[in-house]
């Protein structure tokens, strides 16, 4: 309590500040509300382009991706979220080449630091804007990012 104010000045000054507060809330009673009604607004809800939802490997219409299976992303990851399995095969002209077998991504231990995307020299992986990632079983969080039967995009 401020000692330098007299009893009545303190009383009326106090009441005045209370009234200012009441006026403020009364004004807000009639302002538009901020609530976003998710999930009813699913259709209008659009995430920002750069939002990091989960890691994906884009495939084109011919079921081709850009991953060469080098494993740089796996090395960059601080959490061991990514497991890249690759194999060597012989091309028609007899050279040994590496090719991706499976690209496993564990959403459950991902911390969205983007190091994998930055490490990738081919731009094969990216984050999408999906955010409804809840599942009932933890094992469902481990995703295989390369589609079945997909192959490397031919570079021109």
């Amino acid at each position: 309590m401020k000692e330098d104010k007299t009893y009545l000045a303190g009383l009326f000054g106090g009441i005045k500040t209370l009234c200012v507060g009441l006026k403020t809330t009364m004004r807000e009673l009639f302002t538009p509300k901020m609530t976003e009604q998710y999930p009813e607004n699913r259709k209008e809800l659009k995430m920002f382009d750069r939002f990091r939802g989960s890691l994906t490997m884009p495939h084109n219409e011919n079921n081709e991706h850009k991953c060469v299976g080098c494993g740089l992303c796996q090395m960059a990851c601080p959490n061991g979220t990514i497991t890249v399995k690759s194999e060597f095969y012989e091309t028609e002209d007899g050279k040994k080449k590496k090719r991706l077998v499976s690209y496993e991504y564990n959403l459950g231990s991902c911390m969205f630091c983007q190091l994998c995307v930055r490490a990738c020299p081919h731009g094969a992986i990216t984050f999408d804007q999906s955010f409804e990632n809840a599942v009932f079983d933890r094992s469902k969080l481990v995703r295989k990012l390369n589609h079945e039967g997909s192959k490397l995009m031919e570079t021109k």
Binding site: T25, L29, T31, P32, K33, M34, T35, Q37
Partner: peptide, 13 residues
């Protein structure tokens, strides 16, 4: 409801 409206919210919907 009143509390929500004072607070720029919608309350139970």
């Amino acid at each position: 409801k009143i509390c929500a409206f004072f607070q720029c919210r919608l309350g139970p919907m």
